[in-house]
């Protein structure tokens, strides 16, 4: 019991502390690839701390939903993170929910984020909310189908069970099912975290923005919670991807040696995935809004193919 509690606290701390680092790395590398010096990788921590200390301005038109949303976004991201196995193959909260609860909680956070975008009554916020809800709706079937495909091969929607199953001998990355499901989920990851072919995380005040448009009226500690929540969500989705599809080295027992190896490998896997995201972001232009559904339906088709291939190859 105590060990479980320790694992819970550790994973919470890891989520809180690692998330800004991953965002920082991506920002920094992206700048390097574009021949800029870019912000230091620690810059995101400094930003969050700065926001936390600043005074807040709240819109006079906003209601209580506006002040409630940052907490929902922050807490749901953390909760989701606790349901995904990070260093150990048993996630601390895996009994409380698996893949379905992960999708549900992410949707809950998004629901309140979108409401908060509408609340101050500015046109930007409404635009962001509308687009966010539309694109996430289109992304959802692809996400569900690829997670389902993985769950079918593992026989469970519980993420810990899935990771444990993927550590078994039957799991190979070159298996077409897994490769296709990975590709589908990677596209969904880009969409869900607002990365470049879908949304541009580096822009403010542009008519193309989605996520940032909803945050436009936020300041001070609410903004800190929103930004931090978003980066935790990004970390969680990346963790989901690397740990489900590249599950080697995840500690199955709580010994310090196993945990150390696991942490090291986890860090390397995250860096590799971040590098992939950076490459995609620098080599692609942002898609026009109404071209994004094409991309997401491609993800859906990939997920369907993954599903069909379970049928053909097993």
């Amino acid at each position: 019991m105590n060990l479980d509690l320790l694992a819970l606290v550790l994973q919470t701390a890891l989520l809180l502390l690692l998330a800004p680092l991953v965002s920082g790395c991506i920002k920094n590398w992206k700048a390097k690839l574009q021949n800029r010096r870019g912000p230091r990788i620690w810059q995101v921590y400094a930003d969050v701390l700065k926001f936390l200390r600043k005074d807040m301005v709240i819109s006079e038109h906003a209601s209580w939903v506006f002040s409630f949303a940052p907490y929902v976004v922050f807490i749901t991201s953390l909760l989701v993170g606790l349901m995904v196995p990070m260093l150990t193959s048993q996630a601390p909260l895996s009994l409380f929910g698996g893949a379905l609860a992960v999708i549900g909680l992410l949707a809950l956070g998004r629901f309140f984020l979108a409401l908060a975008g509408l609340d101050p009554g500015s046109a930007f916020g409404g635009m962001g909310s509308s687009r966010e809800m539309t694109l996430s709706a289109i992304a959802e079937p692809a996400m569900m189908l690829s997670i389902f495909t993985v769950a079918i091969t593992a026989g469970s929607t519980d993420l810990s069970q899935i990771v444990q199953a993927t550590q078994g001998p039957a799991w190979r990355l070159l298996n077409p099912t897994h490769a296709l499901a990975f590709a589908a989920l990677f596209i969904v990851l880009l969409a869900e975290t607002g990365r470049i072919p879908v949304d541009n995380p580096a822009t403010h005040l542009e008519l193309t923005m989605i996520h940032e448009a909803m945050l436009l009226e936020y300041s001070g500690r609410y903004l800190a919670f929103m930004e931090w929540g978003a980066s935790i969500k990004q970390l969680v989705l990346m963790t989901l991807l690397v740990n489900v599809f590249f599950s080697f080295g995840i500690a199955s027992e709580l010994t310090s040696a196993a945990l150390g190896v696991s942490l090291l490998l986890y860090g390397l896997k995250l860096l590799a995935l971040s590098a992939a995201v950076v490459l995609v972001e620098t080599t692609n232009a942002k898609l026009r809004l109404f071209r994004v559904p094409d991309l997401l339906s491609a993800a859906f088709v990939l997920a369907t193919l993954a599903l069909l291939s379970t049928f053909l190859f097993q």
Binding site: L118, D119, G126, S130, A137, E140, F148
Partner: peptide, 27 residues
């Protein structure tokens, strides 16, 4: 496949109720 459609339904319902609540009660 119908589970995927259920996911689409759920996400669209969320979009619809962001609209219903947001436009009716907020701003």
């Amino acid at each position: 496949l119908s589970a995927a459609m259920l996911a689409l339904t759920g996400a669209l319902a969320a979009a619809c109720f962001v609209k219903a609540f947001g436009i009716t009660f907020l701003a």
